[in-house]
């Protein structure tokens, strides 16, 4: 069964239509990367998945039931910033969700229970490569380390769905490549379904099993707000790094097309560049994406 179903989804802010007529089905274990021009509603879409924005029209279903209208533990999130708690150390940040689960009243663990939680948290921290910084506070970490911490903090809760809003936008290319490896391995290990917004179209191709392009197809110069963005392209994309898939195939491997051969992938690039109704905008988008790299 589909994990998430989007049925004729609309989002409006007053007069402004931001998203219109979205119809998609997402299965468990898919890695969806989302690209699109700035201001076209990508974050808004993610916020609806998160439950902090309401749906204007249509339905957003999780396991066939309407998505809860507030954030919950089955959906993890990493924002571009402000994702970790400044008053907790690395260990404290990662341990937090375990403490919240086991201690409803104080939200703190002591003694043996704490030891167990610490051990779990330390494994997670080592997995994201922050073992050396266990007792540091977020202000003592670099941007990349903070994002790794945010990932570890979310993943220890074992969410089914992970939402990422330009999580690596502020990182330099070298660190970004490390983060890509990290995200891919965590995605496979935890059998996650990932939605990731990026401005870097290469990143979108590289990481995702599906690439969604958000764009406005109808445009009225007299009323620029009258029409919203749609998902104009839904491309099955493979991973550049085939060996990762071979090592341990994701659970949804049957649904996901196998990694594409290089030649074909280049064709996909061409597709995005040329065969689209409003090429100028998307080319602009690609240039902007490449510019980011």
């Amino acid at each position: 069964m589909a994990l998430i179903e989007i049925r004729n989804l609309w989002k409006e802010y007053g007069q402004q239509v931001v998203l219109e007529q979205l119809n998609k089905t997402v299965g468990e274990g898919e890695f969806i990367t989302i690209v699109g021009a700035s201001g076209c509603g990508k974050t808004t879409f993610l916020k609806m998945l998160l439950g902090t924005e309401s749906v204007s029209r249509g339905q957003l279903l999780l396991d066939g039931k309407p998505l809860p209208g507030e954030p919950g533990p089955e959906r993890g999130i990493v924002f571009q910033r402000y994702s970790v708690f400044p008053h907790l150390s690395v260990l404290g940040n990662v341990m937090l969700s375990l403490e919240l689960e086991k201690s409803p009243l104080l939200g703190r663990l002591f003694g043996g229970a704490r030891k167990t939680a610490e051990k779990l948290a330390k494994e997670m921290i080592d997995a994201v490569g922050l073992g050396q910084a266990m007792h540091k506070y977020p202000h003592e970490l670099s941007g990349g380390m903070q994002q790794r911490l945010a990932l570890a903090q979310s993943l220890i809760k074992r969410p089914r769905i992970l939402l990422l809003d330009e999580p690596f936008g502020a990182l330099d290319p070298g660190i970004r490549a490390d983060m890509h490896q990290l995200v891919l391995s965590l995605w496979q290990e935890h059998k996650l379904t990932v939605f990731m917004i990026t401005h870097d179209i290469k990143e979108g191709f590289y990481l995702g099993t599906r690439l969604w392009v958000f764009d406005k197809c109808r445009f009225d110069p007299q009323a620029p707000n009258a029409y919203g963005a749609q998902i104009t392209y839904d491309l099955p994309v493979g991973q550049t790094d085939g060996h990762l898939l071979k090592k341990s195939p994701p659970r949804a491997a049957e649904k996901v097309p196998p990694p594409l051969p290089d030649k074909y992938r280049r064709n996909l690039w061409n597709q995005v560049f040329t065969n689209i109704p409003c090429p100028a905008r998307v080319i602009g988008l690609c240039v902007c994406g490449v510019g980011f790299v």
Binding site: L50, P71, R75, L96, L100, Q153, K157
Partner: peptide, 9 residues
């Protein structure tokens, strides 16, 4: 929001 996704009430 983050705290809620970590299961906090």
């Amino acid at each position: 929001i983050k705290a809620q996704t970590l299961g906090a009430n």
